[in-house]
């Protein structure tokens, strides 16, 4: 044993990114390596992405190991993201995880990707019981811990916020995020957008349709980008605010790729002041999809005895965060 510290290797492969991270039980990120699939045209092709991950895996794994340990034997647990995500991509990561676990004779932890975003965010911020906005290309939800699970307080009723902005950027010919936000900074005029907020749920398809219509009608791309980003971020900040008001919790964090947005961060910071709450940022490399977050969550699960056998290590493309029994935390402190 290495001074009693446990070491976990985690594999992320839910979508574009193959990430392999190594984390120890003191919360130190020893390695966080990744390779990102960039589609030649607009969309992500699950099978191509999976092939990319399979291709990149040996090199990413080698880099992660070299940076973190002197021998692979030092790894105590192997974790993988079992969902939600694209089936072929998930299977690639799971296969790699099983192979490593079998080779080293170590247990496997099956990690929910969304929960991992939250847990690594808590590690980075030091927050214990935050209200969380999780916004990315494929996910948009507001959640907080209560009665043994991360409960979904609100989510998108149609497309994810990141998906909305990416789709707009691609249609406008400027490319996906962060391009829409960069162009928005040059916008001069706000054109009213449909802002659909229902309780703590949001809907972005109306705003996306309006943005497309405006583009076709010849509106300035900068103005449409400004209007769409302002509308989308206002909706997100509003539902987060509702969650803060409802729970009375004082810690607020935003996780997922879209949390890198400066404008969204600015709005959230302005919002939390109204409620005497605190927002803390998370380093970029821990915001996007990464292996360290899977490793850290896998470690927490392992310590709570939440491991799976190779036979049980299925992937779950539609794995919701509220399906996860959170055994590694005590009862809610709210």
């Amino acid at each position: 044993m290495k001074e009693g510290k446990l070491v976990c290797l985690g594999i992320e492969s839910t979508a574009h990114t193959l990430g392999i991270g190594v984390v120890d039980s003191s919360g130190r990120v020893l390695a966080n390596e990744l390779a990102t699939y960039r589609p030649t045209d607009s969309g992500i092709h699950p099978r191509e992405a999976a092939q990319h991950h399979a291709h990149a895996a040996p090199e990413v794994l080698r880099r992660a190991l070299v940076k973190s340990v002197s021998s692979a034997d030092e790894i105590d647990v192997v974790a993988f993201a079992s969902g939600p995500g694209l089936g072929p991509c998930l299977r690639t990561g799971a296969t790699l995880a099983r192979a490593i676990a079998l080779k080293l004779g170590r247990p496997l932890a099956s990690v929910n990707h969304g929960v991992a975003h939250i847990e690594i965010g808590k590690l980075a911020t030091g927050f214990r019981d935050p209200v969380v906005l999780y916004v990315a290309g494929g996910n948009t939800l507001v959640t907080t811990f209560s009665e043994g699970r991360y409960r979904i307080l609100g989510e998108t009723l149609d497309i994810a916020a990141g998906n909305c902005l990416d789709a707009f950027g691609i249609e406008a010919g400027i490319g996906p995020m962060p391009a829409p936000e960069i162009w928005a900074a040059k916008g001069q005029k706000y054109i009213p957008m449909p802002m659909r907020v229902k309780g703590m749920d949001v809907s972005f398809s109306g705003a996306l349709t309006r943005a497309s219509t405006l583009l076709r009608e010849g509106a300035r791309v900068e103005d449409v980008a400004l209007s769409l980003t302002e509308a989308v971020y206002s909706m997100l900040t509003e539902v987060l605010e509702r969650a803060v008001a409802m729970t009375g919790k004082k810690e607020v964090m935003v996780v997922g790729g879209l949390a890198r947005s400066r404008r969204l961060t600015e709005m959230v910071r302005d919002m939390v002041k109204l409620h005497g709450a605190e927002h803390r940022g998370i380093p970029d490399e821990l915001l996007g999809d990464n292996g360290a977050m899977i490793a850290w969550t896998g470690l927490l699960m392992f310590r709570a005895g939440q491991v799976v056998s190779v036979e049980e290590s299925h992937v779950r493309p539609r794995y919701r965060i509220d399906e996860v029994e959170v055994t590694w935390l005590g009862p809610s402190r709210s």
Binding site: G43, I44, G85, A167, R318
Partner: peptide, 16 residues
Amino acid sequence: EIRARGRYVERGEHQV
């Protein structure tokens, strides 16, 4: 139906 949407749904080739 609503619950089946609004998540990370596998949409073939056009998940951006």
